Simulated scan of single mutants.
Amino acid sequence: MREAPEKRIEQSAIKVWRLHGLIYLCFFIVVTGIIAYFTYAHNWSKWILISSSIVTIIIAILAIAIPAFRWRRWRYQLFEQEIYIQHGMLIIERTLVPMVRVQHVDTKQGPILKKFRLASLEISTAATTHQIPALSEEEAEQLRDQISILARVEQDDV
């Protein structure tokens, strides 16, 4: 079996993923608050409120704990012939994207990534799109340009 790819995504990805998790958590807190109101105002069963509260607490724990584990598994490496991507927590997914299959490469940056000066790299083939999240802006642009050149060279050789 191949060795794991060498390059890691930026460590600030942990903060970005936690922030995304906390945004989703706000939705569950609001829903739990509405359920609490109806439980006391309209005599709903307290089990509904307890269940909702447990789900909200679990999501809060996951929003804080999961990003660090997720970051540890995210790796990538660029070779002349392929792009090697590894990610996953329980199930480790290792993907090789041949340069000859690359159709186009994009960088993507939403407001949260922009705040942390990060960008995601999307590599599109005819069948699917692969993503390397949370790279520094410079690294994402450099990889995008490098993959574009390597993919063009591979296409010319065929």
Rank of each mutant, 00 (worst) to 15 (best):
Val55His: 09
Leu22Cys: 11
Ser136Asp: 11
Val100Pro: 02
Ser45Phe: 02
Thr128Val: 09
Ile58Thr: 06
Ala126Tyr: 01
Ile85Met: 05
Ser45Asn: 13
Ile58Gln: 08
Tyr40Arg: 13
Leu143Tyr: 07
Val97Phe: 04
Arg117Cys: 09
His42Val: 06
Arg94Leu: 11
Glu139Met: 06
His130Gly: 01
Pro133Asn: 13
Met99Gln: 04
Tyr24Lys: 11
Leu96Cys: 03
Ser53Thr: 13
His87Asn: 13
Ala140Phe: 05
Ala60Ser: 05
Thr95Trp: 02
Ile91Cys: 06
Arg70Ser: 15
Ile57Trp: 05
Ile14His: 00
Ile48Pro: 03
Phe38His: 08
Leu143Cys: 05
Glu122Ala: 09
Ile9Met: 08
Leu49Tyr: 03
Leu113Met: 12
Gln103Pro: 09
Ile91Arg: 14
Arg18Thr: 07
Asp157Gly: 10
Ile48Ala: 11
Asp156Asn: 14
Pro111Gln: 05
Leu118Ile: 03
Thr128Arg: 11
Thr95Gly: 02
Trp47Lys: 08
Ala126Gly: 06
Leu113Asp: 14
Ile85Trp: 06
Trp71Ser: 07
Val55Arg: 09
Asn43Gln: 14
Gly21Asn: 06
Tyr37Gln: 03
Leu135Asn: 00
Gln86Met: 06
Lys15Ile: 08
His104Trp: 08
Trp74Gln: 09
Phe79Gln: 08
Arg72Phe: 06
Ser124Asn: 12
Ile29Lys: 04
Val102Cys: 03
Lys108Trp: 11
Gln131Asn: 10
Ile83Thr: 05
Gln86Lys: 07
Trp44Pro: 04
Lys114Gly: 11
Thr39Leu: 06
Ala68Cys: 09
Ala13Tyr: 00
Ala134Leu: 04
Met1Gln: 10
Val153Met: 12
Glu154Leu: 01
Lys7Asp: 15
Arg2Thr: 10
Val31Arg: 00
Ile83Arg: 04
Val105Leu: 04
Phe28Leu: 12
Pro111Ser: 02
His20Lys: 10
Ile34Tyr: 12
Ala151Glu: 01
Ala4Leu: 14
Tyr24Gly: 15
Leu150Val: 02
Leu49Lys: 03
Ile147Phe: 08
Leu78Phe: 04
Phe116Lys: 04
Ser52Tyr: 09
Ala36Pro: 00
Pro111Cys: 00
Trp71His: 12
Ile59Asn: 10
Tyr37Ser: 00
Gly110His: 03
Asp106Phe: 08
His20Val: 03
Ser53Tyr: 08
Thr129Ala: 13
Phe69Val: 01
Trp74Met: 10
Arg101Gly: 01
Thr56Gln: 07
Ser45Cys: 05
Leu135Trp: 04
Glu154His: 15
Ile23Thr: 05
Ile85Asn: 05
Arg72Ser: 11
Thr125Ala: 07
Arg152Tyr: 09
Leu150Thr: 00
Phe116Glu: 09
Glu10Tyr: 02
Val158Phe: 13
Ala151Thr: 00
Glu139Ser: 05
Ala41Ser: 15
Tyr24Val: 09
Glu141Cys: 10
Asn43Gly: 14
Ile57Tyr: 06
Glu93Lys: 13
Asp145Leu: 06
Ser148Thr: 14
Ser136Thr: 14
Trp71Val: 06
Phe28Gly: 01
Glu82Pro: 01
Arg75Asp: 06
Glu122Gln: 12
Ile61Ser: 00
Leu49Cys: 01
Thr129Ser: 15
Ile149Trp: 07
Ser53Phe: 14
Gln86Asp: 00
Met1Arg: 10
Ile29Gly: 03
Leu150Asn: 02
Pro5Asn: 00
Trp44Val: 04
